[in-house]
Amino acid sequence: MLRESLCTVDLPKTEYLFNAAKAFESYSDMVYRLAFVRLCNTSDAEDVLSDVFLRLIKNSKKIKSEEHLKAWLIRATINCSYSVLSSAYRRHRADFEELSKQKAATTEESVLPLVLELPQRFKTVVYMYYYEGYSVEDIAKLCSLPQGTVKSRLSRARQQLKLQLKGEDINV
């Protein structure tokens, strides 16, 4: 499950000087957010954040460019959250605590709880498309999925959200 080979993008090796400080400064929030959206749980997201950056330090020689770094981090976050999801503890326990917390803390027009309640495979594409602003093609590359799959997941996610949002148009 833990694939880190996603980023086959070839970029100049000598020109990019990896700087973990900058990487952490720029992307810790992104990693944490993606993990949170996928796991709906602050403590799990925290674990993933720490995990991902330790992996990054170990694999820093592989990072070839800023784009590659970001892609690598997204991929690693997805992989790391898989291992949390598949852990025995998680499989045998239903955790709605965080979700209800989220709900309590939000107002009428909040949409995040709705997104968090989407099936796992929809959440990630919604996050990447609407929040990170990636194109369908980019998401397909990042998640090693066919473009059609990404498109259909997006559209099904939109349908579900539309029902919840009582018909409000979410096409952007």
Binding site: F24, S28, D29, Y32, R33, F36, V37, A45, E46, L49, S50, F53, L54, T106, E109, S110, V111, L112, V115, V126, Y127, Y130, Y131, L161, L165, E168, D169, I170, V172
Partner: peptide, 25 residues
């Protein structure tokens, strides 16, 4: 509408400073 609202809400999700400090240590 949806996009802006989602963006606003996800923007609020941030790891705590203490956590960042711990990870880096």
């Amino acid at each position: 509408m949806f996009k802006e609202q989602l963006k606003k809400e996800i923007d609020n999700i941030k790891p705590s400073k203490q956590l960042k400090e711990k990870i880096l240590a």
